[in-house]
Design a protein around this nucleic acid. Structure first.
Length: 398
DNA sequence: CGGCATGATTAACC
DNA sequence: GGTTAATCATGCCG
C-alpha cells in the first residue's frame, strides 16, 4: 500500500493543480479539446474551493448547482478513484465540499469535544466499577432492587436501634435514593435519545454528502462509533456523579445512625433492673447480654456499652445513684414477693441472683467501697431489708 | 444557651 | 476479647 504510485499530491493540498487529475479516466479526458475540458474542471474545482468562503445559503445554492452540473458524475468518479487508491479520506476536496455543512460539523465538534473524553476500550474497568456499584446500590438494575433495602437492612442490623425512628430514617434514605435513581434514569434516557437523534442526524448528513463525495460505509460506521464513544463518555460522567451522590447519601445516612439516640424508657428500665439486681456482680454473661439486647431491641454491643458506662458511673458516684438503686431494688423485691405469693419460685433465667444482693461489686481501688457505702448509708439504702418497707418505697418510686 | 445525662469511642490494661 | 477510664458528641431540660 505504501509503495504503490501515489496519485495524490504528497501533502494533499491544492487540488486545482493536483497531479491526480492529470491521470484522468478515459471518459473524462477523451477527446482532443483537453484544454477546454481542463478549464471546465478547473472552474468546477475553483467553485468547490471557494465554497469555504461563502455563506451557508450561498453554499446551498452552489451545492445544488454542483449536483446538477453535467460534469458532476465524472468528477465524482474521479473522486471515487482517488479515494480508493489513496485509501485515505483526507482529500482536501472532500473537506471543501463538506464545507456546506459547516454548522453541523461545528455542532458535532462541540458535542464531541466535551471534556473527559478518554476513548477507553470497551471493557473499561472504571466503567465496570461504576456499573457494579450502581447495581449494588440499587440505582441501576431492576426496579426497587435489593440494593437499597440491603443497605438499609445492613445498617439496621449493625445498629439495631429502636425500630421507630429507624424506619423513619430508612424511608428517608430510601426516598432520597429513589430520587437519585429517578434522576439517573431520566438523564440516561435523555442521553440515549440525544445520542440516537444525533446519530441519525449525522447519518443523514453523510448520506446527503455521499451524493457529492464518495463515503464508504466504513466511514459512516467510524463516525457513528465516534459519536457513541463520546456519548458513552458522557454517560460515564453521569454514572460517576450518580455514584458520588449515592456515596454522599450513604455516608450521611450512616453518620446519622452513629448519632447518639437515647434508649427508650422501657429499655433503660430493663437494663437498670438487671444492673441493680446484680449489683454484686453486674457483669452479664454473653447469653444474658443477648437476652437483654433482645428485650430492649438494641444490640449486644450496646448492652455492653451500657453496662460499661453504668458500672463506671455508678462506681464514680454511688450517692447519685442511691435513689435509683432503691427504686429498682424495691421493684425487684415486689416482683419477688408477688412471685412467691403465687407460690412459685421466681427464678428468671436472666436474673439468677436474688434482688438486692449487694455483696461485692469489685472496685479496682477499694474492693469493698460499695459495701462500706451501703453500710454508711444504711438508713437511706436498706437493701437487705427492702421487703420491710416495700410499700413506702414503691409509693415513692411510682 | 448552659449544664447535665447518656450512648459511643478509644487507649490502656489484664 | 472484655473491662476500665477518659473522652467525645449529642440529647435534653430548665
Amino acid at each position: 500500500m505504501e509503495e504503490q504510485p501515489r496519485l495524490m499530491h504528497p501533502h494533499g493540498v491544492s487540488l486545482a493543480g493536483h497531479p491526480g487529475l492529470t491521470h484522468r479516466p478515459p471518459d473524462v479526458t477523451a477527446g482532443n479539446d483537453g484544454d477546454s475540458r481542463k478549464q471546465d474542471i478547473g472552474d468546477i474545482l475553483q467553485q468547490i474551493m471557494t465554497i469555504t468562503d461563502q455563506s451557508l445559503d450561498e453554499a446551498q445554492a452552489r451545492k445544488h448547482a454542483l449536483n446538477c452540473h453535467r460534469m458532476k458524475p465524472a468528477l465524482f468518479n474521479v473522486l471515487c478513484e482517488i479515494k480508493e487508491k489513496t485509501g485515505r479520506r483526507n482529500v482536501s476536496l472532500t473537506c471543501a465540499v463538506s464545507r456546506y455543512v459547516g454548522e453541523e460539523k461545528r455542532a458535532l465538534a462541540g458535542v464531541l469535544s466535551i471534556r473527559g473524553a478518554q476513548d477507553e476500550e470497551p471493557p473499561d474497568p472504571q466503567l465496570m466499577r461504576l456499573d457494579n456499584m450502581l447495581l449494588a446500590e440499587g440505582v441501576s438494575g431492576p426496579e426497587k432492587g435489593g440494593g437499597a433495602s440491603a443497605v438499609a437492612a445492613a445498617a439496621a442490623a449493625a445498629v439495631g436501634n429502636s425500630g421507630n425512628d429507624n424506619s423513619v430514617e430508612h424511608s428517608d434514605y430510601r426516598a432520597k435514593l429513589s430520587q437519585i435513581r429517578q434522576i439517573y434514569h431520566t438523564e440516561l434516557e435523555k442521553y440515549e435519545q440525544a445520542c440516537n437523534e444525533f446519530t441519525t442526524h449525522v447519518m443523514n448528513l453523510l448520506r446527503e454528502q455521499s451524493r457529492t463525495r464518495p463515503i464508504s460505509p466504513k466511514e459512516i460506521e467510524r463516525m457513528v462509533g465516534i459519536i457513541h464513544r463520546k456519548f458513552s463518555s458522557i454517560q460515564m460522567q453521569l454514572k460517576q456523579s450518580t455514584c458520588e451522590a449515592v456515596m454522599i447519601l450513604r455516608s450521611r445516612f450512616l453518620d446519622a445512625r452513629r448519632k447518639r439516640r437515647n434508649f427508650n424508657k422501657q429499655a433503660t428500665e430493663i437494663l437498670n433492673e438487671y444492673f441493680y439486681s446484680h449489683l454484686s456482680n453486674p457483669y452479664p454473661s454473653e447469653e444474658a447480654k443477648e437476652e437483654l439486647a433482645k428485650k430492649c431491641s438494641i444490640t449486644v454491643s450496646q448492652v455492653s456499652n451500657w453496662f460499661g458506662n453504668k458500672r463506671i458511673r455508678y462506681k464514680k458516684n454511688i450517692g447519685k445513684f442511691q435513689e435509683e438503686a432503691n427504686m429498682y431494688a424495691a421493684r425487684t423485691a415486689v416482683n419477688a414477693a408477688s412471685a412467691s405469693a403465687q407460690g412459685s419460685q421466681a427464678n428468671s433465667p436472666s436474673t439468677p441472683n436474688s434482688a438486692g444482693s449487694a455483696a461485692s461489686f469489685n472496685m479496682s481501688h477499694s474492693g469493698d467501697l460499695f459495701m462500706s457505702v451501703q453500710s454508711l448509708n444504711g438508713d437511706s439504702y436498706p437493701a437487705p431489708q427492702v421487703g420491710a418497707n416495700i410499700q413506702s418505697q414503691v409509693g415513692c418510686a411510682r
